[in-house]
């Protein structure tokens, strides 16, 4: 499997200036970040606000360019301006606020916006729009105004808008932060389906631990650095370390960890309630 994202030592700094343009302070948003994402993977990036995860996401879409180090997206260097459009097609991006990324006043026109920008012929745009709307279960709403949709539906339209560009990879920057639990569920299942059925690489940025349980790989960021990486099971068995970095684990994982601390012999890194129930039942029958 080839690498869709390959970041080596990337550095990015925000420079704050005062009213006269003098440098007031420098904040290092990304500090020597290495990141490998394989094609077809579902990767989650976790971290508190200000840990640099959004900055990293914008780099993969070439909205920001590294000041140091290299970032290859599907083999293309993001520093090469001639590749920018190709990179943005390959690695599409969904943002946090559903209202601020829908451009058109009708759902189908919004999904067609991306293909229009890259000069796809009219007939082909229609085929793509239909296909992408169906893939997120929003085809029925194609004539609706986005203003009348729920948050979860708006985010699915935004995902369809990215899908219409036929990307290999979708980056979602906290797509569920502003949604209610139902909307969150809608968006997550749509994303998981795209990953499983269409083989789209997913990079999900979030601070909800529950959303990362199904990922192949988790990266934890803090102060612009990747501080932990591994499979969900590996990451979630390090509960104490996560807590030190002010990240919470799913309730089930925390319960299992607490029980283990209290002397019950349970396996490490329990992720789902089914796993915990099975483990506890086994324990009770051996007692």
């Amino acid at each position: 499997m080839s690498l869709i994202v390959k970041a080596r030592n990337i550095v990015y700094e925000y420079i704050r200036r005062d009213d006269d343009g003098n440098v007031e302070g420098i904040e290092t948003a990304l500090d020597q970040v290495d990141l490998d994402v394989k094609e077809g993977d579902f990767v989650a990036i976790l971290g508190a606000n200000g840990s640099g995860k959004s900055t990293l996401a914008k780099h993969i879409n070439a909205l920001l360019k590294p000041e140091n180090g290299t970032l290859l997206v599907d083999g293309k260097d993001t520093l090469d301006d001639n590749e920018t459009l190709a990179i943005r097609q390959t690695a599409g991006m969904v943002f946090q606020n559903p209202d601020n990324q829908i451009i058109a006043s009708v759902v189908e026109e919004d999904v067609g916006f991306g293909p229009e920008n890259i000069g796809i012929p009219t007939d082909e745009i229609w085929t793509r729009v239909e296909k992408s709307l169906r893939s997120v279960g929003m085809y029925h709403y194609r004539h609706h105004s986005p203003n009348r949709l729920s948050g979860g539906q708006k985010q699915r339209v935004a995902i369809a808008g990215v899908m219409a560009m036929k990307p290999k990879c979708i980056i979602l920057d906290e797509p569920t932060a502003m949604l209610d639990p139902v909307g969150r569920q809608e968006v997550l299942s749509a994303v998981r389906e795209l990953n499983e059925k269409n083989g789209i690489t997913v990079i999900l940025i979030t601070h909800y631990m529950e959303e990362t349980v199904h990922a192949n790989r988790i990266f934890v960021m803090e102060s612009g650095k990747v501080i932990m990486q591994g499979t969900p099971r590996e990451i979630f068995s390090r509960v104490e370390e996560l807590k030190e970095h002010h990240l919470t684990v799913p309730q089930v994982t925390e319960l299992a960890w607490e029980l283990k601390k209290a002397g019950l012999s349970l396996p490490d890194g329990i992720l789902t309630k089914e796993e915990l129930i099975t483990a506890l039942c086994q324990l009770s029958s051996t007692n």
């Binding site: 943005r88 916006f113 991306g114 012929p121 009219t122 745009i125």
Partner: peptide
Amino acid sequence: AMEARCYHGGEGRTKM
């Protein structure tokens, strides 16, 4: 968001 979706002005744009 527009930039991320390859918007780069009217040049080379097609119409849905």
